[in-house]
Amino acid sequence: MNVVVLVKYVPDPQGTPELDDAFLVVREGTEGALDPGDEYAVEAGLRLVETHGGEVTLLTMGPETASAALRKGLSMGAHAGVHVVDPALRGSDALATARVLAAAVRRRPFDLVLAGVESTDGSTGTVPMTVAQLLELPSATFARALSVEDGVLRIERPTDLGFDVVEAPLPALATVTGSAPEPRYPTLKGIMQAKQKPVERLALADLGLSAEALAPTQRVVGLTRAQERAAGEVIQAGEDTAKRIVDLLAEAKVL
């Protein structure tokens, strides 16, 4: 089976992304990595082709530096990469991104598209579903386990009470959560083989898309910093201790 995994190169996932004047994430000249959330999707894809045969192709859209995300996934064991890189794509919103990714997926036969749940930088969480919609695929979201049998994708989706089992006929799209099996380490051999694996570079024209058609339909208009957490209150043991604790719990509407 052919699995396409949507991957994203994000600024240092441990740090706080820098924003420019237009509230766009600064991607040039910053250290970055394959989005850790996407690694779970890569792992899920690798496991499926290890069971069923076939190949995992990584697809990313991003500046030149985004090739590092492909290289990481290839060193984990993915077979090929596709990198959509075009200056006109700078500042693309989630819808434009989904259009580009869908157009790139469509170019070759595929059975399954996998993605993380959301990126750690933009965190819109809408791209996978939009890609599914554009490709007219059933989508199974928030998978913690995936299997394929007789052309049917089956996932487990954790819920508050337990988990749902969701099935969809292939071709389909699924998003993979961080409770799926841990991503493997790239081995030394994997790292060294990665540079020999094919990576196709595509520009917008190769996808039959124009910059005008991809103009953002949404933009960030403002930014408010998250409120810093106030210091907690330490209640000293004394006569009123119990009453103060009960008052606080009532204030917090716990009682």
């Binding site: 590092a68 290289r71 990481k72 060193s75 380490y185 790239p186 030394l188 790292i191 060294m192 540079k195």
Partner: peptide, 10 residues
């Protein structure tokens, strides 16, 4: 090189 860095990071 990129490869050396990747091995180091792993």
């Amino acid at each position: 090189t990129d490869e050396e860095r990747a091995i180091r990071d792993a």
